[in-house]
Each structure stands twice: as C-alpha cells, then as structure tokens.
C-alpha cells in the first residue's frame, strides 16, 4: 500500500496547498452552505422548536418573519426554557435578536471562517444582498467542503503516481516485447501509411508521448512508402516494442539496392515521374528516417532484397503520457 505521506508530498508538488488556499479564499459561502434551512416563526412555541431539533437532528435555527431574519434560536435557549418550565411560550421570548451574526452568500469562505473564530458561534444564517435568508452555514459545512477537496486531490495524486514510468510496467518477465506485423502491397498507394498510422496508434495507446509516437510514425511511413514504390512484390513491417526501445524493420524480397551508400544521399532517387507526381520519390525518405530514429541500418543485395532497421530509444519521459 502506498504511503499517505508520499502522496501528500506529491500533492505538495501538484499544488495542493494552493488549491486549498484557493478554496478558502475564493469559494463563496453560497457554495458551502446548506440551502433552504429549516426556519421557525417567532410565534412558534419552544415545543415546536424542540420537535424540530429532534426531527432534523440540528442544534439551532434561524427565526424568520415576513421573509426577514429576526432572530436565531439555539439549543441553549431551549435548555433555558426547560429550566423555567415555559416550553409553551413563544420562540420570540427566548431567541437571540439584535445585532445577529450572519454570513453573506457572496463572501469568501475565509471571511466566514474568521467570523466563526472571532465570535464563537456555532452557525450563521446566510443572507443574500437583498437581506433574504438563503441558507445556513456551520463550521461542519466548511470542514466537509475541505475534506471533499482533499479527497479530490488525493485521487488526482494517486492517478499521477499510477501512471506508467515505462511501457508494460505492470508486466513482469525477464524480457517483454510487443510485436506488430504488417504486410505492405506493392503499388498500393491508397493504403500507404496504414501500417504506420496503426503503429502510431498502438504506441499512443500503451502510453508513449506524442513526440515519440510521431518520430516512429514518420520514419515508418517513409519506409512503408519505399516498400510500395520500389519493391517487386511489396514487403512487411515489423515493429518490436520493448520497455526501453522500439525496433522497426521494413523488409522486402527484391529487387535490392545496388549501392546502399548512394541511396542514402539526400536527393538521390530512382523514382519515376509518376511517383513524383504523387508527392514522393524526391530522395529525402532515408534522410528523414535517419533524422527521426536513433539508429538506422540498411542491408541490401540485388536479387535478394532489402532490410531497413530503425531503432528508437525510449526515455522515461517519452514513455509517459504528458
């Protein structure tokens, strides 16, 4: 089980304090208060109040007359009434009136918290700008909101921690790899790029960074187009995905390249004008592969075929979704 302290320190990094700070300073009382609280009329009896306390398990209530707050009645007032045996008397006789301690719906929770501290009251009726009672707030409401925010932060922090540091982190073996194989048809321009797009998608799905997925896809795409343009009968692409490196092989069985070094020169091409019209064959494909991969090697023999191998290093940052 993960240590809560580790999570807390992580939360510190993700700005937990800032978030709680924001909550207390910026969140208005209206978001935290209990809306439409139970109220009493000044003409209700203390017995009515007692029944209300019992029914709702509360410890006090605002007293309202003509939609205006006229007093607050609490459990202490009820005890007082009980002592004098006057439970049939009106709430009006026991409630606190005058300079009532209230909260404003629009003020920040921080202000309400300060007022609780300063006055020692247990609850405050909440008034809107037109002095109408819209809710009631207790210290408990604020605590609950804070706990809720903390819970969300914990969930966030846990999610950050559970993200993979490298591919297949959850799988244990001496060596793990995922093999993806695609056949590429000669002259199949319409589907050209299909294999590369699928490899890119697979990488993104297992958690590769978009940057890593892009450079693998671009290099593979160039290799795929080469198989379509230059081979006798197409070829295949094999992607071998390992926790710390990706190897892609594009292989065909002919015609083979007479001079591999020459073929690697920028701008060198044997493509027909028809291919060039399609936007390829400008002699930049291998240059592009070289640039996108960390290692590239090409073997070819006329009459046998060509094997292009590309290696991509996976750094911990690249293996993780940003």
């Amino acid at each position: 089980m993960k240590s809560r302290f580790a999570l807390l320190s992580l939360m510190g990094k993700s700005g937990a304090l800032t978030k709680i700070h924001e909550l207390v300073r910026e969140m208005p009382v209206s978001r935290v208060m209990t809306t439409s609280p139970a109220t009493l009329s000044p003409d209700d009896s203390m017995q009515d109040f007692q029944a209300l306390l019992r029914k709702l398990r509360i410890s006090g209530a605002p007293v309202v007359e003509d939609e205006k707050l006229v007093g607050i009645i609490s459990i202490e007032d009820l005890i007082h009434a009980m002592e004098t045996g006057e439970l049939s008397h009106a709430v009006r006789e026991y409630m606190t009136t005058g300079d009532l301690i209230v909260a404003r719906a629009q003020e920040p929770v921080m202000e309400a918290l300060r007022r609780f501290e300063r006055t020692g009251v247990g609850r405050m009726p909440v008034l809107n700008p037109r002095e109408k009672l819209v809710g009631i707030i207790t210290r408990g409401d604020i605590t609950e909101a804070l706990l809720h925010a903390l819970q969300e932060l914990y969930a966030e922090a846990e999610e950050i921690q559970s993200q993979p540091q490298h591919f297949f982190e959850a799988l244990e073996s001496e060596s793990t790899n995922l093999l993806l194989r695609y056949h590429v048809e000669k002259d199949d321009f319409a589907r050209g790029g299909d294999a590369s797009a699928k490899i890119k998608q697979a990488l993104l799905r297992i958690g590769a960074s978009p940057k890593l997925a892009r450079r693998v896809a671009i290099a593979t795409y160039e290799a795929e187009i080469n198989l379509i343009i230059h081979t006798d009968s197409g070829g295949f692409i094999l992607a071998d995905i390992q926790p710390d490196e990706i190897n892609i092989v594009a292989q065909d069985s002919g015609p083979g390249i007479p001079d591999v070094e020459l073929a690697r020169q920028p701008g060198y091409s044997t493509a027909t004008s028809e291919i060039r019209e399609k936007g390829f064959g400008a002699g930049m494909g291998l240059v592009n592969i070289d640039r996108c991969s960390d290692e590239m090697s090409m073997w070819s023999a006329v009459g046998v075929g060509t094997r292009l191998q590309m290696k991509f290093d996976v750094s911990p940052e690249e293996a993780r979704i940003k």
Partner: peptide, 8 residues
C-alpha cells in the same frame, strides 16, 4: 508538394 520535405 513533396511529402518527405513536409515530414522532415
């Protein structure tokens, strides 16, 4: 119009 140039 050269796709490799774009990708480069």
């Amino acid at each position: 119009d050269l796709m490799s140039d774009v990708l480069l």
